[in-house]
Structures are given as C-alpha cells and as structure tokens.
C-alpha cells in the first residue's frame, strides 16, 4: 500500500511539474479535485516552487571584477588552450596525396595540347614525345627553330604516398 502511495504522490508531483504523460493526467486531475489531502499536497508543492522563484537572482560574487579575473587570467596562462589534433584522412592530406599530382598531370596535358595548337608548331618539323616510359617527363623539339623544351612533372603520387611523412597520416 505504501509503495502505491509513493507512486501516487510522485505522479502528483509530475503533474504539478508538467511531466506526467498525457494519458495519466485526467486521472490525477480528478484525484486532486476529489481528495482534499492530495489537493493540499499540490498546494504545498506549488508554494515551495513559488518561494524558490528568483531566489538566486540576488546572489552576487563577493569579489571585485579585477581580483576575480586576475586569478582566472593566471590559470589561462598556465593551461593554454589545447589545439585540435590534425584529423587523419583530412582534406589537406587528401589534397596532398591525390589532387596535387592529378593537377600536375592535367596541367602537363593542357600545356602539351596548347603547344601542338600554337603557331610554333605550324610548319616545320615538330616532335612531341614522352622522354621515356615515365609520363612525368616530356620533350618538345622544333627542328626548324632549333628549339628543345623539356618538362619535368611533380613527383608521382606514389612517391608522396610512400614517403615517411605521408605514412604518419595513416
């Protein structure tokens, strides 16, 4: 019986606090309306809430602004803000590993295309070839002008990926 009473008073309190589930609200409201003791309990709970309202608004720190802040400031100097650690697989790492080499290759192709379309290549004998099987080096020769140009690209992404620096990102 006592346990049932305990459950009941806690439900009454939840009703006062607006935390009682809706299906139970009507039952508790009816109980409050017909039981004078429960109604008195509700009144007391509400009075206590009212008494506490605004209680701590008047509480003020018993120290001056300067004195209070000076200690905080000392602690800020002692314990500086932690910098967030770099995140593995971050955007920067992705750029370094894939985008930059890919951009270099794309730039080389674009430059080569421009040269083939340019007036330099009009007439005369021109060759455009990879210097070797490695696509990272290209040679342009214009025999008429006696001109030879060689491009060396950025190291391949494998070089970056295999480096010790890149290994720390994984």
């Amino acid at each position: 019986m006592k346990e049932q009473e305990q459950d009941l008073v806690l439900k009454v309190q939840a009703f006062v606090d607006g935390e009682l589930p809706e299906p139970e609200q009507a039952g508790i409201a009816a109980l409050i309306a017909r039981d004078a003791d429960v109604a008195a309990l509700v009144k007391e709970l509400k009075q206590t809430r009212q008494a506490l309202a605004g209680y701590d608004e008047a509480v003020a720190l018993p120290e001056s602004r300067e004195f209070y802040w000076s200690r905080i400031q000392r602690e800020l100097a002692r314990f500086p803000r932690e910098q967030p650690e770099p995140v593995r697989g971050s955007l920067g790492a992705l750029l370094l590993r894939w985008l930059l080499p890919a951009t270099c290759v794309a730039a080389l192709v674009a430059v080569g295309f421009l040269f083939l379309q340019s007036p330099w290549s009009a007439g005369g004998e021109v060759t455009w070839q990879a210097a070797n099987d490695n696509v990272n080096a290209f040679t342009y020769r214009d025999y008429e002008e006696g001109l030879t140009v060689m491009w060396l690209s950025y190291p391949s992404d494998n070089t970056v990926a295999d480096s010790a620096e890149a290994a720390t990102l994984n």
Partner: peptide, 18 residues
C-alpha cells in the same frame, strides 16, 4: 573573454554556491 566573465560571473558563482 574577460568581458564575458564579468557579465556572467554572478550567475556562475550563484549556481556553484547553490
């Protein structure tokens, strides 16, 4: 940050004290 401390110090202290 000092201004924020000055502005809210009473409330933070009051909560700790309560």
């Amino acid at each position: 940050f000092e201004e924020l401390v000055a502005r809210h110090r009473d409330r933070i202290y009051a909560r700790a004290f309560s």
